[in-house]
Each structure stands twice: as structure tokens, then as C-alpha cells.
Amino acid sequence: MEVRTIKVFTTVDNINLHTQVVDMSMTYGQQFGPTYLDGADVTKIKPHNSHEGKTFYVLPNDDTLRVEAFEYYHTTDPSFLGRYMSALNHTKKWKYPQVNGLTSIKWADNNCYLATALLTLQQIELKFNPPALQDAYYRARAGEAANFCALILAYCNKTVGELGDVRETMSYLFQHANLDSCKRVLNVVCKTCGQQQTTLKGVEAVMYMGTLSYEQFKKGVQIPCTCGKQATKYLVQQESPFVMMSAPPAQYELKHGTFTCASEYTGNYQCGHYKHITSKETLYCIDGALLTKSSEYKGPITDVFYKENSYTTTIK
């Protein structure tokens, strides 16, 4: 009895394709271990004539594949690729409408935090270190965002349907971005203890939790000093293409032309909904596939993004 075979390709990165001759009487799992086709788990399936010449994702289970996976995804987590594939199996079914010149995501599976993050990423200057993220990001900007969303979920250790947080998501993504040249110098002034300067680099240099107003941050924000008295913390120097200011959701007025974009969060910790506000020729609110415009805006804002380049204080 002759062994019926077909020729397929296996890959971990969709760049390096490895030619395989597979036995049609055995499952993919018996031949390769966990195997995925377009995100779908085909591990328990036997090869079919229609699979001839198709590319299958496999887990990096030998040295060659491990090197290829690390170079593309910059992670050695053995569960990463499987999590990416199972997320992709959902995100490829989502709709990605162009809204006001940006790629958004039609609401499904509690994905409003991903839509808000995706919209924000198209408006701030950011370059990702893992080629996987950078490639998928370019495709997302062009309207094909399924891979990018699935990668975000995998890097953030999230599953489809789980509630997510924009600030946490951005923080994970910033860790995989090139923020080497970003720098922030802060000064804390206390009447009792004097003053202390701190220099922050990388992710810490672009994120701040405690106030939404970048102007206020430049002037000074009140913080408790270690001595128990009130101290003032203010920005001395900022070198970065953008800054992200966050605070627990509270009524906040966004003035046209003073910011790049913002995240609105309605609801409580267990259950809520994100919308995205962007400042173009007027203010726009993007909620999944829905767009509304207004000249002014007041609502429960939790993150505001500002364009920056270089700032030095005039406070002496």
C-alpha cells in the first residue's frame, strides 16, 4: 500500500517557510505537534488534498525554529505562539472599519479597549522592536488589523473576551517599542525636605499616572512627601515624541487643539466601556464603527496623549 502524501510549508514567522512532505494517514499533531492554519487549530486533523502548498504555523520545537521565533517575536515564552494563534482565530472574524481616516474595530468580545489602543497607536510616533509587531502594525494602518490585535493580546497575556485596560495595554506595548531616546527629568520640591531631581528613561519617561493635564504637570502637581507634608512635583525636561497622561476616570474637559487623542471610560472596574476622542479640525468621538463630532467635550476621561518633541522648564 502506497503512502499518500502532500507537500506543505511549516513556519513560526510566515517569513521562513520549511518544506514538509506530510503523510495523509496521520494527523498534523502526530507529525508536527500543535499546528495552526489561519489561526485555526488543526492539530487533530489529517492532511487533505486542499492543504497542498498551504502554510501551517507550528510551535518552535527545534533550534532553527526557536531562533526564527525569537528573532521575529522577541520572546522565548513557549506558550506565546499558541496564544497568538488562538487569538487570531477570533480577531480574523472582527470587522476593521476605516473611521475618520483611522483603522478602528467594530465592537465584539469586549474589544473596546483594543480599538482605543489601536486608534491611539496610529496617532503617536512609535516604532516597535519585534519585527512581528512592526509588520502587523503597518498592515493594521492599511486596514488589516487582525494579526496586530492578536499579537497585542498575546504580548499582554490576554484572551479574547476578557476586559482590558488601555493604560495597561499601552504599557505592555511600550515595553516592546523603541523608547531608548526618551528621557524625563522631574523635580520634587518640599518646604521641609528641599528639592530632589529624578531622571527617568524609556517607558517611565512617557507615562504618568495622577493627572490628565500635561500643562498642569509642567506647572506642578501636589504629591505627598515622605515627611508627610505636601510637596510639588513638576516637569523639568521632556525628550520624547509623545507623552501619555493618565488618571482614574473623572469628568474632564478636553479643549480642541490642546491634545492629540484621549480615552474615555464609562462604567466601573468590573464592567465598563471605552471610547476614543481625537482632536482634528474639530473633536471626534470614535466608538467602534461609530463616529460623532463636537466642538467641545466633557466626560469621564482616563488617558490623554500629547505630541511632544523637546521641553525644558522655565521655572527657576
Rank of each mutant, 00 (worst) to 15 (best):
E2F: 10
V3L: 13
V3S: 14
R4V: 13
R4L: 12
T5R: 13
I6K: 08
I6F: 13
I6E: 04
I6C: 12
K7G: 13
K7M: 09
V8T: 08
F9V: 08
T11Y: 06
T11H: 08
T11V: 05
V12D: 07
N14T: 09
N16Y: 09
H18W: 06
T19C: 09
Q20V: 14
Q20G: 09
Q20M: 11
V21S: 14
V21F: 15
D23Q: 13
T27L: 10
T27P: 11
T27K: 09
Y28R: 05
G29D: 09
Q30L: 13
F32W: 08
G33C: 05
G33M: 02
P34Y: 12
Y36K: 01
Y36A: 04
D38S: 09
G39Q: 09
D41H: 09
D41A: 14
V42M: 12
V42Y: 14
T43R: 11
K44C: 11
K46G: 10
K46R: 13
K46S: 12
P47R: 04
H48R: 13
S50G: 13
S50I: 13
E52R: 12
F56S: 04
V58N: 07
V58E: 05
V58Q: 08
L59Q: 11
D62T: 12
D63N: 08
T64Y: 11
T64D: 10
T64S: 12
L65N: 08
L65K: 11
V67P: 07
V67L: 15
A69M: 15
A69R: 05
A69Q: 11
A69E: 07
E71F: 06
Y73D: 05
H74W: 05
H74K: 08
T75G: 05
D77E: 12
F80P: 03
L81F: 15
L81D: 05
G82H: 15
Y84P: 01
Y84E: 01
Y84F: 10
M85S: 04
M85G: 05
S86Y: 08
A87T: 06
A87I: 07
A87S: 08
N89F: 12
N89R: 14
H90R: 11
T91S: 05
K92A: 09
W94F: 02
W94T: 04
K95E: 15
K95A: 13
Y96N: 06
Y96R: 03
V99P: 06
V99A: 08
N100L: 07
G101L: 05
G101W: 05
L102H: 07
I105W: 03
I105H: 04
K106T: 14
K106S: 11
K106C: 07
A108F: 04
N110C: 03
N110D: 04
N111W: 03
L114Q: 04
A115D: 05
T116C: 13
T116Y: 02
A117C: 09
A117F: 01
L119T: 02
L119Y: 02
T120K: 04
Q123K: 06
I124Q: 03
I124E: 03
I124F: 06
E125L: 03
N129L: 07
N129W: 07
P130S: 06
P131G: 06
A132T: 04
L133C: 07
L133Y: 01
Q134M: 09
Y137I: 08
Y137G: 02
R139N: 11
A140W: 02
R141D: 04
A142T: 15
A142H: 15
A146E: 08
A146R: 05
N147I: 09
F148K: 04
C149L: 09
L151A: 02
L151N: 02
I152N: 03
L153T: 05
A154W: 03
A154Q: 04
Y155F: 03
C156M: 14
N157E: 08
K158L: 03
K158M: 04
V160E: 02
V160F: 02
G161E: 04
L163V: 13
G164M: 01
V166K: 03
V166P: 03
R167H: 07
R167S: 04
E168C: 07
E168R: 12
T169V: 12
M170W: 04
S171F: 15
S171I: 12
L173P: 01
L173D: 04
F174I: 01
Q175I: 06
H176F: 12
A177E: 02
N178H: 08
D180E: 11
C182A: 09
K183C: 08
K183F: 11
R184C: 05
R184D: 00
R184F: 03
V185C: 04
V185M: 06
N187S: 12
C190Q: 02
T192I: 11
Q195W: 09
Q195L: 13
Q197A: 07
T198N: 10
T199P: 03
G202E: 06
V206C: 09
M207R: 07
M209C: 15
M209L: 12
T211C: 11
T211R: 05
L212M: 05
L212D: 03
E215M: 06
Q216G: 07
Q216K: 14
F217Y: 06
K218T: 06
K218D: 01
K218P: 01
K219S: 11
G220V: 01
V221Q: 07
V221T: 08
P224C: 11
T226A: 14
T226G: 14
C227W: 01
G228S: 02
K229H: 10
A231M: 02
K233Q: 14
K233W: 08
Y234L: 07
Y234E: 01
Y234M: 10
L235H: 01
L235Y: 00
Q237V: 11
Q238F: 01
S240Q: 01
S240Y: 02
S240D: 01
P241I: 01
V243H: 02
M245F: 15
M245Y: 00
M245I: 04
A247I: 02
A247N: 06
P248C: 09
P248R: 13
A250P: 01
A250N: 11
Q251T: 12
Y252C: 10
E253Q: 09
L254H: 00
L254I: 03
K255Y: 07
F259E: 01
T260E: 10
C261D: 00
S263D: 05
E264W: 03
E264P: 02
E264I: 14
Y265A: 00
T266Y: 08
G267V: 08
N268D: 15
N268Q: 14
Y269K: 14
C271I: 11
C271Y: 11
G272F: 00
H273S: 00
Y274H: 01
Y274I: 02
I277M: 02
S279I: 01
T282I: 09
T282L: 11
Y284R: 00
C285Y: 05
I286T: 05
D287T: 06
G288K: 02
G288M: 00
A289C: 08
L290P: 00
L290R: 12
L290W: 12
L291H: 15
K293N: 11
S294G: 10
S294E: 10
S295N: 07
E296R: 10
Y297E: 01
Y297D: 00
K298A: 13
K298H: 13
K298G: 07
G299C: 04
G299S: 04
P300G: 06
I301Q: 00
T302M: 00
D303C: 03
V304N: 02
Y306T: 00
K307F: 09
N309E: 08
N309F: 09
S310L: 15
S310P: 07
Y311S: 08
Y311R: 08
T312L: 14
T312N: 09
T312S: 11
T313I: 13
T314R: 15
T314G: 15
I315R: 15
I315T: 15
K316P: 15
K316M: 15
K316G: 15
